[in-house]
């Protein structure tokens, strides 16, 4: 076991991990932050996406020790300071961008990374950016709509919800 230290959602945290401990396991088992989900073992579903130093990362495909010292942000850190939903989260609720909720944390984290990089994406840019986040429930229609809405764009023209 090795001690690892990092910042998670603005708080310094540390814990003992093995070399093989994945960041997703450290977050879920070590810190109890179970909002980060694991939906596959081949790095494709994206349910586990978190931000590491501002960049989207599949937390099931990085060792906790490899991001020692980094600033990590998870779905638990996405609400406003007063606990209300952040802009992207609110847009997902308003536009029914989630059903079972399992892919949602990764989807929100990827959407946040997109909008940080590209504040006014086109529909096509949103779809391409989210290609590494698999949703089985929504057919993506309302997810794309929610991301466009979160970017402040008018989604009234988008086909019926």
């Amino acid at each position: 076991m090795t001690n690892v230290t990092m910042t998670v959602n603005g708080k310094a945290v540390s814990g003992d991990v093995e070399g093989r401990t994945l960041l997703s396991s450290f977050l879920r088992e070590g810190l109890g932050l179970t909002g980060t989900h694991v939906g596959c073992d081949t790095s494709q579903c994206g349910a586990c996406v978190v931000h590491v130093d501002g960049k989207p990362v599949k937390s099931c495909t990085v060792f906790a020790l490899d991001v020692a010292g980094a600033a990590v942000k998870t779905i638990e850190g996405m609400a406003n300071a007063d606990g209300s939903l952040g802009v992207i989260q609110q847009a997902f609720q308003d536009h029914h961008g989630l059903q079972c909720g399992f892919c949602t944390p990764g989807m929100v984290m990827s959407a946040a990374a997109l909008l940080a990089d590209n504040p006014k994406p086109t529909e096509s840019e949103v779809r391409h950016y989210l290609e590494g986040n698999i949703c089985r429930c929504t057919g993506y229609h309302n997810i794309v709509k929610a991301v466009l809405a979160a970017s402040g764009q008018d989604v009234a023209a988008v086909a019926a919800e």
Binding site: L33, T34, G35, T74, I75, E76, F92, Q93, G101
Partner: peptide, 19 residues
């Protein structure tokens, strides 16, 4: 009506079996 269950899913507070 927007969904009430969304609040917990969107904030990482859902409680799935693995959690």
């Amino acid at each position: 009506t927007v969904r009430r269950e969304d609040i917990r899913f969107l904030t990482g507070k859902g409680r799935y079996t693995a959690d």
